[in-house]
Amino acid sequence: MNKFIVSGTPHVRSKDSIQGIMRDVLIALTPAALMGIYVFGLNALVIMVISIASAIFFEFLYQKLMKKPVTITDLSAAVTGLLLAMNMPSGAPYWMPIVGSAFAIIIAKQLFGGLGQNFINPALAARAFLLASYPTAMTTWPAASHAVVDTASSASQAVDAVTVATPLALLKAGSITTVTSSDMINAFVGTVGGCIGETSAIALIIGGIYLIVRHVISWRIPVIYIATVFVLTAAIGRNGVRVPHYEILVGGLMLGAFFMATDYASSPVTPKGQIIMALGCGLLTTLIRIFGGYPEGVSYSILIMNLCVPLIDRFTEPKIFGAPEVKKA
């Protein structure tokens, strides 16, 4: 007699998979990664390759040692590795992405239960760890090549064109009083100082739109996050300068808003919660940038909001369909 499979409903499943989602994220990061190589040279590529390879290796190693099923084919470790590299300066020593990947994969991800269980973004946690441990190496910015338009700030540094200050540091120091259209173009294209993957706003926006169109992420976190920073920097200003249109293009905001704050495991699942997360990130980023000790606040603001996610989810549970109306006391 034939044997038939007996199982619970439903009997059909969508074609979506974790691997497919992670592949989409990698595709979405490609334009920004290519711009990173174009702007910062082959060294950027080397850092990215080392970071991705070591992230995959540490995931494999941990799962082998712990006798767990090896899940490196789901590509999530590759995403973490690439994001970490994109959050590092291209001049970082080659051992640094290895240490960072080990921290991201083993400490931030696997020790808390692996995929989906990490309460903070692994790549950002590793970046914060590296920034605290090796502050000089993590904040030495090799100059960008191929500047579309030479500007006053890039020209003044051209004398000593090995390292540069990032636009955010210049804003903080008050060296920028007006933003010219050349500054805007450089920030938009990505020919400014900064981490490998954060400088090209246009490439990151293209990748972000791809993720939204593919339903991998919702528009809520990136759009509201960027809008909040725009509104707050316009309202507060710094050193009497109000250049919100420039502020949102420079630093890690685009990378953070589209790719880091939207990390599934460490962002809220409810629509309302995602809005709160985005508002919180925007507020903290602006406060750190303007009043804090660091020029950039994207990483820390996302990490702080990551910690609030369980609380946010708890208080933003959606109203169920057909819920009895709450009687007024």
Binding site: S7, G114, G116, V269, P318, F321, A323
Partner: peptide, 24 residues
Amino acid sequence: AFIPEERNCIRCAKCVDHCPMGLM
């Protein structure tokens, strides 16, 4: 009738976004 292998929940919120009853 293929039943795919179960993996870790990645908290992608697709179930929340699609539940017709508004559950989690």
